[in-house]
Design a protein around this nucleic acid. Structure first.
Lengths: 134, 134
DNA sequence: TTGACAATAGAACTTTAGTTCTATAAAATG
DNA sequence: CATTTTATAGAACTAAAGTTCTATTGTCAA
């Protein structure tokens, strides 16, 4: 058995109740293999890297969600529209404010998320769904 | 055996020579399991999603690399520095140009990559290593 | 050789975001 | 109740990016 099979078999045989099973379709595995071959690396290494990168993203999402809860309702509105790539003017028109007011909210938002600019905010929340503010 | 084990076992027993083995450390698997539990989803579903997202990123990189080849040497310089978040002024000082010239190059770069602004360019090349231009 | 094109360089002007400040009303606190 | 804090709103100014244009030189094709 390969090291992976050993590990997996070991985790299955451990006395754990209701442990979920890890099941991937073979096409994903094959794509990993193809990519690994292109990069001259072991597929398990590539897969681990991809998984770990994805997991890191998710953990950052948890942090961002906590910070989101610290926003006022108005700030959440402005955040959502910023992340949908609306300009200050567009946001102002949408929320019936002056552009300067939008910038004030943006200032507060960036401070609460501790990011240097709107781009960094958008990057931080890039996987979020803001369609409720469409 | 789980479905994954079946698939994997099946791929191993197929008459393929030198097929690489997929091997992940158990801590990664456990992290996937924890995340899946938080999201009330099956771990194999989460893992597949993470892998597929990562693979999609890699494919976009291939396209970007083709476009990168279309850049002139100067444009590649400017692209690298833009992606390291340098301002126009900083880039101009680094390359001994006027800021307006940097903006001209940027214009050409954005056109060649078919992106609307520098932020989109940085997003597109976010996984690249530009340390050679440090 | 001449003209077209590409690479490199730069300028004037506009738009947008960022920075620092002021102001008011409502809510919280002592 | 008086004061402080917070949320919301806005303004003046600056920095940065974006847009459209001009200019020169080298290369290439007719």
């Amino acid at each position: 058995m390969s090291g992976f099979l050993q590990d997996f078999w070991f985790s299955i045989t451990r006395p754990r109740r209701g442990r979920p099973k890890l099941e991937l379709d073979s096409s994903t595995l094959q794509t990993v293999a193809v990519l690994a071959e292109q990069e001259n690396r072991a597929p398990d290494e590539v897969a681990a890297e991809l998984l770990q990168a994805g997991l890191r993203d998710r953990q950052e999402t948890v942090m961002a969600q906590l910070l989101w809860q610290c926003l006022t309702p108005r700030e959440q509105d402005v955040t959502a529209l910023i992340c949908q790539n609306l300009t200050t003017r567009q946001i102002a028109a949408r929320l019936y404010l002056s552009p300067d007011t939008v910038k004030t909210h943006a200032r507060h938002i960036l401070d609460k998320f501790n990011v240097p600019n709107r781009e960094a905010l958008r990057q931080m929340l890039s996987g979020w769904d803001f369609s409720a503010w469409a």
